[in-house]
Design a protein around this nucleic acid. Structure first.
Lengths: 158, 158
DNA sequence: TATTGTTATACTCTATAACTATA
DNA sequence: TATAGTTATAGAGTATAACAATA
């Protein structure tokens, strides 16, 4: 019999066996790792996860309104105001009044915004590659597909 | 050519193609769905995700200290104090002074805590089953394995 | 009346510094 | 001096109610 027992008595190692089977638990831990890394990656570019997401969506959907952006980001409108404020204050997007509906703003990236987004996107892409280095391309695709299916299967949808 | 264009002109559908390839994006959206569902599931049992996790770990590791629990949960000690306070105030766990180290507390679930945990665990399990209804058992195992590998591959580990 | 954007507000989660009491 | 628990505090992220301007 092995003699490696009773070697480090003070810390009997905490077991989380009862939680390991829960997807919510694994998802939270994985997301916290990814989220923290993503924040570190975006910080030198003056962006956070939410502003990066908003900037990307505005770039890909020029002229969209704040309501549309909030819906796409699954963020409440009041919270989006702050995000758009910051991007506008940083000179990365513009808020143009829509002639046909003077209540709404048409959001567009500035030249500087496009430049910043390109830099940040490259950093994010290379960082994701490092994070997912342990997975094959096949596994990454599987992961994404499973995540998307969870999102769209949501039983608590309102 | 099809005639389904120009049918709903006001909303050209926001595209997030540039983000769909990022694991961080899919992970966040999936986690928000799961997190919200989990919160709804736990609420009638008087628990939140953090208190449920703490209660589960205390039950599975009787006598562990707050420091050990904080480390296992990847929560800073000051934040754990509030969580333990709430569980203790609800009569679900006890804080016993450790005779050999009077600085530390030994955490243990009460009878009521064990009962509450059993109820909540059953609710969580059945809710996870509903959430993952679209995935096969094989796919769930794959998902969990991939999440764990992401967590342990963390390139930004300190 | 309904919608767009906004303000104000509150609650949860997370993070850091600094304290106390023990060790 | 180092560690366990604590207090105070600050910052994100999220959510709801209510308002002004416009439709």
């Amino acid at each position: 019999m092995p003699d490696d027992a009773a070697k480090t008595p003070p810390r009997p190692a905490v077991t989380d066996a009862a939680l390991r089977g829960l997807v919510g638990y694994g998802m939270k831990r994985a997301f916290m790792v990814i989220g923290a890394d993503l924040a570190r990656t975006l910080e030198p570019h003056g962006l956070r996860m939410l502003t990066f997401t908003a900037l990307t969506l505005v770039a890909g959907n020029p002229g969209l309104s704040q309501s549309q952006l909030a819906e796409a980001m699954q963020v409440e409108r009041p919270n989006l105001v702050v995000i758009v404020d910051q991007l506008e204050a940083a000179g990365l997007i513009t808020r143009d009044r829509v002639p046909t509906d003077r209540r709404a703003y048409a959001l567009r990236v500035t030249a500087e915004g496009a430049r910043r987004l390109a830099e940040a996107s490259a950093a994010v892409a290379s960082h994701e590659a490092a994070l997912l280095a342990g997975l094959t391309a096949q596994e990454r695709a599987t992961l994404m597909a499973l995540l998307n299916r969870i999102e769209t299967t949501d039983p608590g949808r309102r």
